[in-house]
Design a protein around this nucleic acid. Sequence first.
DNA 1: TTGTAAGCGTTATCAG
DNA 2: CTGATAACGCTTACAA
Lengths: 328, 328
Amino acid sequence: MRDVAQQAGVSLKTVSRVINGEPGVGAATAERVTAAIAALGFERNDLAHTLRRGGGSATLGLLIEDVSNPFYSSIVEAVEDAARERGYLLITASCEENPELEREMVAALRRRRVDALLIVSAGADHGRDLRTTPAVFLDRPPVGVDADTVLLDNAGGARRAVEHLLAQGHRRIAFVSDRATYWTARQRLAGYEAAMDAAGVEVDPWLVRTEPHRVVEATEAVLGLLSLPAGRRPTAIFAANNRHMVGALRALRDRPLGVAVVGFDDLELADLLATPATVVRGDPYEMGRLAAVRAFARLDGEQGPPVSLVVPTDLVVRGSGEIPPAVL
Amino acid sequence: MRDVAQQAGVSLKTVSRVINGEPGVGAATAERVTAAIAALGFERNDLAHTLRRGGGSATLGLLIEDVSNPFYSSIVEAVEDAARERGYLLITASCEENPELEREMVAALRRRRVDALLIVSAGADHGRDLRTTPAVFLDRPPVGVDADTVLLDNAGGARRAVEHLLAQGHRRIAFVSDRATYWTARQRLAGYEAAMDAAGVEVDPWLVRTEPHRVVEATEAVLGLLSLPAGRRPTAIFAANNRHMVGALRALRDRPLGVAVVGFDDLELADLLATPATVVRGDPYEMGRLAAVRAFARLDGEQGPPVSLVVPTDLVVRGSGEIPPAVL
DNA sequence: TTGTAAGCGTTATCAG
DNA sequence: CTGATAACGCTTACAA
């Protein structure tokens, strides 16, 4: 910048004014400065800019579980779009359900003075972090603090899915999900239990599988369910997220027993599958969009108490969930 | 930091030393400083750190087409993993094949002084940018400059795919891809032509569809091909990327004429599809990994001439590409 | 309309 | 081992 000033024969401040489009610069002077900037290929150092100006670095921090999961990449897409619209950049980091990594990443983002954090939390406590940086929690509520939150209607969606299976006469309905340490898994289990309860169907604890996390583990769990003796075998399965649904579909492909499945979260090519997948789904793009809207509202100075938003889910009937109970 | 110094009764520089683990601080002093840092919840301002220290902000910039495309999200995942390993953060931006947006984003990243750029370029010229920031080009070569590059074996992969169809007796093989303004589309078309040529099969220009970009457009194009009169209709289709493959599969689902399809790029649930998808695929995670390795090599001071890496492709036979030509 | 001086939060230099 | 001082590249406040 000093070079530009010298080349244009003006002071630093004048260059600064031109760069930031501030008024009070003669047309001829501005011209000379612009020319010098172009000639020298000068680009303002945003780090210095932010440091001096205080406040915003025009950057958002987004913490998710895993970019390669379409559910999260849709969230990333939404936040990116919103950020671009406001001239913000986005730092994304995947924490793979590791609270310690999550804390480290939040620290790194805060040291870089991101303006706001959007967090799909693996459960780390961010109480102290939020005192200086506004944050919006996505998909799971924060622990230990109160903050803006955008969640799915997990229990409602799960209930809807199970009701759909019950309505077709299924009684032995299995539940396959992550460990109950996951908040969403707990919520969806609650929805499953509520639906079973309301229908007066007793839950067989053998049919509740809350261990698998990865796809292969889900496949194994479902294969286990399918090899139960006829009377104890489920006639339908509710897979509580996209990984478990994929796992279940793989198991059913290898052992086609005419078992119905409904998943939670949509699948990329659900309509092209051998048995098109019936799912209950929320809209992850919408979640990301709403979270960004919240973040910007806070950055624009909104002061009120934490806001909780719940994104609805809907049932998409495609075939896999409409298989009638087999006569055992 | 001043507060910390005061609270610990030392000078700024001593605090700085403790924070950065520099030697030359008495154990007792260090203890006091550490305590003060914890008590005040102090976090170093990395912006100021970078400004003063010069050089790295420990941040990488990654420009891709679209995060929600699994091909790109795998690249993001790989770069994220590599970045984390070195303590770097990653700013990702999707440019949707818009060269102007790409230029803007590069400028924004450079102003923030990212240490290196990884670019899936829509064709913008980055000649000037690269004079100060090392860059690695992914999936497509740079225009107007020479730089480190990680590409897929596009022509080879396409050729392999078409040879696979030819080997089964197909002669009327359609080619469906993006416009030829896309470098990858051109390369894959070249591979298609080479395979046809080598087999002595003349290419029917009616069967070469290089307009569709989005999935629906690909579906329409393929439906168009399928409604050609029997003698002119293709008996096989080569879909030159994942979007076109999905489009083709949708068209074939709606009009099941026993036409073979091979795609370029793998699909998420290829094995679970009604007709499991035969594809030629490169490994996008590996591409991202290699690009990150290149970037860090440059950051570590490697000086040599630009390096070009080519990631191989392999054919995955699953069913959709093994349908014999229908007797017309 | 333009310029000067001070300072954002940190680190490098060099003296104590 | 420790600290004063200048400087990183920029902007604000206040002159001129």
